[in-house]
Nucleic acid binder design. Structure first.
Lengths: 135, 135
DNA sequence: CAGCATCCATGACGATACTG
DNA sequence: CAGTATCGTCATGGATGCTG
């Protein structure tokens, strides 16, 4: 994604229709990997899966995120229909973010991933050390 | 990760022990997201989940990957203990890659993700178009 | 066949400052 | 509080050419 625009770089109708082949460079499902791939989307979705949250709440809970990246990522997720933005017109304004039903389906796989990480990261680390010793 | 080294940038013993908090910037599980995050790891793991494959076989099946990225990603995956490299000493040499049991556990979550993508990408695209119209 | 080395562009991301 | 704008950095990854 470019810094200044959110537009999708245009798949042809032909490639858009052809679903299912993840390994095709033009397959729209590659977009999912791009979204999952960015540094923060998964973390945000996971948190919003717990309960709705306001901007600064998210910012506090996610260690190391800048507000630029938080707002940028939230907008991408909103654009994709994965996150819902709700403005509460108080003064000062409050903004609450929620996960959509669409994203909630994705969440179970995402959760599985993180559980795998938490339970197997030790094995990964020792594999890394073994690898580094023999090289 | 740097271009020239695979070394992990050193978490303190204290943070290494503390498992489970993905939202902590120093949590080792962030590594998983980094690995998942790179453009090709998931695709490679998914393919190797089908059956073992040789280098050029992978290259052919994954649209758009360069051999630089393929070999680089394979080495990272091997270092993490997710992929196993096996050299067949013929001439010319053949190299076969396989998934490890450790990675196979991860694969079910990854597979779930891709299925989600393949079934819901249409909704995502229409959400994007809706979003783009109102802005 | 299965890579490694090098060069280079782009874009992801962080830091900082400012606003309704 | 919840952002936007701008600037700079550095890593990601593509292209190309070479090797055992």
């Amino acid at each position: 994604m470019q810094e200044s625009t959110l537009k999708t770089p245009g798949y042809s109708d032909e490639t858009t229709k052809r679903q299912g082949n993840v390994y095709d460079a033009n397959c729209p499902t590659r977009q999912l990997l791009d979204r999952i791939g960015d540094k923060w989307s998964v973390l945000i979705l996971l948190l919003l899966g717990e309960h709705d949250m306001r901007f600064n709440e998210l910012k506090k809970r996610i260690g190391g995120i800048s507000q630029k990246m938080l707002s940028q990522t939230l907008r991408s997720l909103e654009r994709d229909g994965l996150v819902c933005r709700h403005v509460i017109p108080t003064r000062p304004i409050l903004v609450s973010y929620a996960i959509t039903p669409l994203a909630r389906e994705l969440l179970s796989s995402l959760g599985g991933m993180m559980i795998w990480a938490e339970t197997h990261m030790k094995e990964v680390r020792s594999a890394q050390e073994r690898f580094d010793r023999n090289s």
